[in-house]
Design a protein around this nucleic acid. Structure first.
Lengths: 168, 168
DNA sequence: TGTGTATCGTTGGCGATGCCAATGTTGGAG
DNA sequence: CTCCAACATTGGCATCGCCAACGATACACA
């Protein structure tokens, strides 16, 4: 491996990003083996843990955009892992249900993902794994403060401006 | 924020991935303010630290694919931040050079990125920051073992199979 | 010297994730 | 009844990572 700029290797954001790439690769390989991807796992897990839910709820619980939930549910339903039925009590909503095949798939993905954690944490002793998990949880919690806040006063005018390419 | 499945929040790979998303958002915002993106920073940093290089070298140093280096250099050159000249000693190669405008841009991005680290590490005391950095570095190093290894014996037949969508 | 292999830059393409805007429907508050 | 909010859907885009194929060039070795 040729040398990587110290400007990069010294930055937590770089370490985090690159390590996340490795983690994602491991997970993708595991999921790919059962014909799924990350979004599918999130939704199956949320359904298993909290039961039937609307797509909007799933999106909030899984940190996914509504439109991405639509696509993922399409795929899961196509594979017969979940069912999407209109909610009779609120006709705007769909009720998404995990079925038996979905539970089986979830268990498969669980096993794959457990192996991923081991590969990912590789050489780290148990204590370090715990420390790392604690620090990451702490930071993630910090950065999630205020997400999905109820619309209080005026909807803020400052939406993050779309980054537009200046070239190419 | 609605509840996130424990299956997710308990997994280091999830924490890592989600936190990386936040980090990427912070960095993108900072870079976007100066009309750049992550790939540009990597290349400018590598050029500043190691001097003129071929595109292939840049790719290896920055963990980027050759083809992505081409695109990034196109953009950087278009903005007048680097120069791309054929290498007279090896006509397969281009020599990529950082120029003054590029150095200025790099300094701007450095400042933006420094702020990102602070935002990212948010509430963490110095000691925890150091611990986190150490653990991440350790893991990243572990997962990079054997990347870009020289072609020793037979090139292994087992390339990671392309994950192909089974639906949609 | 010639031939085969490796490297290099380039083009073109794809998947995964994270977003956003617009649209039409429906619920609910006032 | 009206207006606003939430919902599902469609369609689009940016970033990042990656791969295959191509033609040009360098190089090792027979």
């Amino acid at each position: 491996m040729e040398q990587t700029p110290a400007r990069l290797t010294a930055k937590p954001s770089w370490l985090l990003g690159q390590l996340a790439v490795h983690a994602h690769r491991l997970a993708s390989d595991g999921f790919g083996g059962v014909g799924a991807r990350g979004y599918h796992y999130r939704i199956l897990a949320a359904l298993d843990e909290f039961g039937v839910a609307s797509q909007a709820e799933l999106g909030r619980r899984c940190s996914m955009d509504r439109s991405d939930v639509v696509a993922a549910i399409n795929e899961l339903a196509e594979q017969g892992l979940v069912e999407r039925t209109p909610d009779p009590d609120d006709r705007r909503r769909n009720m998404v249900t995990l079925n038996t095949a979905g539970e089986r798939q979830l268990r498969r993905m669980d096993r794959a993902l457990d192996k991923v954690q081991d590969d990912l944490l590789g050489p780290l002793p148990a204590e370090d794994r715990q420390t790392l998990t604690r620090l990451l949880t702490q930071l993630l919690t910090h950065h999630q403060r205020g997400e999905y806040r109820l619309p209080e006063a005026v909807p803020p005018v400052t939406s993050r401006p779309r980054r537009t390419r200046r070239h190419g």
